[in-house]
Design a protein around this nucleic acid. Sequence first.
DNA 1: ATGGAGAATACTGTATGCAATCATCCCTCG
DNA 2: CGAGGGATGATTGCATACAGTATTCTCCAT
Lengths: 230, 230
Amino acid sequence: MPETPTATVRGPIRRPAPLRQAVYEALTEMIINGSLKPGQHLVEAELAESLGVSRQPIREALQRLQTAGWVDLRPAQGAFVHSPTTEECAQLLSVRALLETHSAHGAAQHATPHDVARLWELQQTGLTALAAGDARAIVEANAALHTHITHLSRNAVLAELIPQVDRRVRWYYMPIAKPRGKDAWSEHARIIEAIADRDADRAEELMRRHTQNTTDFYCKQIAAVAVHSA
Amino acid sequence: MPETPTATVRGPIRRPAPLRQAVYEALTEMIINGSLKPGQHLVEAELAESLGVSRQPIREALQRLQTAGWVDLRPAQGAFVHSPTTEECAQLLSVRALLETHSAHGAAQHATPHDVARLWELQQTGLTALAAGDARAIVEANAALHTHITHLSRNAVLAELIPQVDRRVRWYYMPIAKPRGKDAWSEHARIIEAIADRDADRAEELMRRHTQNTTDFYCKQIAAVAVHSA
DNA sequence: ATGGAGAATACTGTATGCAATCATCCCTCG
DNA sequence: CGAGGGATGATTGCATACAGTATTCTCCAT
């Protein structure tokens, strides 16, 4: 059977690796792309069978998914896909703005020419995806760029915390990736320039405005959708 | 055998409750109070026996301990108590400063008179502990106060993220709690006043300076210890 | 004596089985 | 006809057993 109708079915995970990690990635993927819908009850046995593993790796993956905010784990009831609210999303974006701004400051202080070159590569990847109009690729490139800036800040705590926030932002960001893309990537370019100049304060300020623009754009988009659906 | 000499031995966990939670709390306690030393290899079977449970709850607790930053979990090798570095501590404090500052701003916007009254209660608890010279109680009161400010900000994402950073700061904070206490708690009082006045900008600025003072104090203390031990 | 190969050991990773708990549905009683 | 209580099925929580892998110790060769 090449594909069954139910969207949650998946082929077995590649064996030679920590299964819990593979399961974790598979489940996040399924949540992001909508195979697992918000509020849905995740039954361990079902997931285990569809992924071709036992319940144990599933349980461990679910625990990590909870701390990452993907699922809510209610004792003696099991896991439920997290239902995001617009309020929570605004909070996520505001915290992200804070952390990324701090991160940009540090990146500008520590970046080497080699690091900057890598940033320009990622920027190019993003522009290509933007030209192709591939929302999925745009979001991915965006995440890759921001992640790399985070690492350049040489702050392990930040690098640990930001992904927790950022991946969830990615989820919400998908629908607005294309319309927001053009401005976003030109802002990226200016941020990279500031980092290349080792101008920490300018990089910080540009990142602050960049994340603020994204937040504003998202809120407007939400409002528009709300009106449209009314 | 009522007690074995090894410091890691503990009585069984109270049964009627999620065991993984109880194990998690027991292990954090042991790490904080030094029963489990930094770098130490945590063997699942040993912990399981000493806590009177099977390996399963231990494993789940260790996973959570990893995401909280208490242990490092190396694949196929097991769990090791995290060894903090002064560099990492500085990063933790800087991130904490960022988050707490943002939190203070939100708290001043949303606080009700009842909330403010509660803050003054916590402040009083801290002053009492300070007068008694009980470092443990000081740290606890400090954490309680900051936690409550976080909740007042009405930002669920912040409230979720800050404890992850804050608990680890608490760990490092213990040795400097007493000498830092006097200034810290008078700064707290001014922050509470700003929150009571609903002056978000002032609260934010006061919190920024407060966390900055704490960071500076910590760094000086570390330097002093380094000189002393040299 | 020292370096390396191989085997023994110990530990983690995974699977399976059992008991406790929660949700649901049906039956009975008011 | 509606509400409450109990039985049944499903699902989680925990424990045990097995397999794979990294580490360490020993023994042999150089």
